[in-house]
Design a protein around this nucleic acid. Structure first.
Lengths: 164, 164
DNA sequence: TCCAAATGTTTTAAGTCTAAAATGTTTAGG
DNA sequence: CCTAAACATTTTAGACTTAAAACATTTGGA
């Protein structure tokens, strides 16, 4: 038995430099891609990324979503969604109404205009993503999907542990 | 030769659903981890993530950095850095001075207090990262590093192409 | 030398974001 | 039925963020 394995129990400072480097690289990739998508959305459609993201959620839910649903899906705070929705209602892209069965709940959905504009943006958006990832082989994509799924699970469990 | 390969030249709408799913998963992982780090920094040290990130950059540069350097490294706008630095100077964590050779340039560095506080936070931060990635094997980490490096390169080239 | 272009930073206006407190509504247990 | 807890949303205060314009300084030719 090595000294190392004996001393682990007393929580010697371990080296996690590799994980730290991995995190920074993950963050760099996301920031880089997010910034590029943001720029293209603004230049091509004069729309912000958060608005596009919110419309993307609603496009997948023809019957609408509650603000809480949206907030959980987008992983942003409730208050954030309130303001975002307000601006999109003002611009005619969203419809907001109080649930008939529970007056606490606001149900939002895309208007006809909102859906039409989103579909146009989404089509181009998909080509941008393809462009950004174009140097990855199908195998790279599959392997990244697998490893990121594992990463997501690991992170979710860590969050869970803290919240306990 | 298939119909598909013949028609590619006329830019039929291709399917990039896999890349889109990959992007969303990448974004989810980053958002999840970033949110957890943000929460822990606030609860444990009452500091925001952007401030921590800025101090992390400066910790690696004992001789200080210019605001432009910081802005490029953090991949945020110049104006963003101005405000961030201002608050950290006010709280005594940063020292800012005008370059003696070029009066346009502001050089910032950590104060003794700033460095001491950052080192304490960084030590815990590293254990949080290790915790968040703890279900990944060393091989997973290596493989992710490789694939994310490739992704970064691919994205950088796409940005380059648009800017041309 | 002069001055236009380049460079570094700050300012501005608007939007995004968070955590926490406040408000309104529903639900469940006594 | 009552009411405390739970739930959904909004409000608040402050920080962060961006793009674009403005400002200050330096640099590289003509």
């Amino acid at each position: 038995m090595t000294l190392d394995s004996e001393t682990k129990a007393v929580e010697l400072p371990e080296d996690h430099a590799e994980e730290l480097r991995l995190w920074l690289r993950l963050l760099t990739c996301t920031t880089l891609i997010e910034g590029e998508i943001r720029t293209r959305l603004r230049e091509r459609f004069d729309v912000t990324l958060p608005r596009f993201d919110l419309m993307a959620q609603l496009d997948k839910a023809p019957d609408g979503m509650t603000l809480s649903d949206v907030s959980k899906r987008m992983m942003v705070s409730n208050g954030n969604v309130t303001g975002l929705v307000e601006r999109l209602v003002d611009s005619g892209h969203l419809d907001r109404r109080t649930s008939e069965t529970d007056r606490r709940v606001q149900v939002i959905r895309l208007t006809k205009l909102g859906r039409a504009e989103f579909r146009k943006m989404a089509a181009e958006h998909e080509t941008w993503i393809a462009d950004l990832f174009s140097e990855l082989t199908p195998k790279d994509v599959r392997e990244l999907m697998r490893l990121l799924a594992k990463t997501k699970g690991s992170a979710q469990n860590a969050v869970q542990r803290r919240q306990t």
